[in-house]
Amino acid sequence: MAATPDTMHWRGVHHLALVTPDMDATVRFWHGVLDARLVTTLATPDFRHYFFEVAPGNTIAFFEFTGKDLDTYAKPAGVPYEKASQFDHLSLYLPDEAALERMRDRLKAHDCEVTDVIDHGFLRSIYFSDPNGIALEASWWTIDPTGRPVDYSDPQLFADPDPVPAVVELRENGVLDHTVQTVLVDSIIEDIRRSA
């Protein structure tokens, strides 16, 4: 069943824009180690913006801002950090276990630290970081929930014993009772939940 009567036909993530203080190291890791082809670059006096292909039509992009000394940090995936409240980690999709093991071996061959394969039930993953400290994951679906009808009562895929009200609505009615409103901002707001 479609999420709405007028279904959007998403084709993946066009690009996820991240920030790097060192574009050269970023190219060397993303293109050289991860084998995500550098497919386009652009630059202005204020920034560089480079794009790496992770699937047809899907890219990971980085900004390198000119003359800006930005705070950086590194954190493991799934560990909360007050300065990273809107981004935790990026998981890249691989087709199967063999590809996951090849990526793990490739990372090790390039002297990059990486976990063993972690079994999460419906997916298996490895975890590592890029040279910017961005927490990364490579995963494959052992049970692919995409491209097929959703069964919100499937305990393998919907295992939260106390789901949020929106999931209860979807499970019971197949639709949401309501959505939420958002607003545009014209400057940086430090904590949107407290300033509303």
Rank of each mutant, 00 (worst) to 15 (best):
Q181C: 12
V117H: 00
Q86R: 07
G32N: 07
D154C: 03
T7Y: 04
D35S: 04
C112G: 11
C112W: 04
S85P: 15
I192N: 12
D111F: 05
G12S: 13
E97V: 05
F29A: 01
P165L: 07
R102Q: 12
A109E: 10
T41R: 08
A36N: 11
P95H: 03
G78T: 15
A17L: 06
V79K: 14
P145W: 03
G57L: 06
D24W: 09
H178P: 02
L100E: 02
P21C: 10
K83V: 09
A61P: 00
E82T: 15
V167T: 10
G174S: 09
L38P: 09
R102M: 11
F63W: 12
W10R: 10
L92M: 15
M103H: 02
A84F: 03
M103D: 01
E190V: 15
D88I: 05
D191I: 14
V164R: 15
D22N: 15
A74P: 15
T115K: 13
P131W: 01
D96A: 03
D96W: 00
E64I: 11
E172I: 02
E64D: 05
S139H: 02
V164E: 13
D144F: 03
G78P: 15
L38F: 13
S125C: 00
P149Y: 01
P5G: 01
D154Q: 10
R48Q: 14
W140H: 08
F47G: 05
W10F: 10
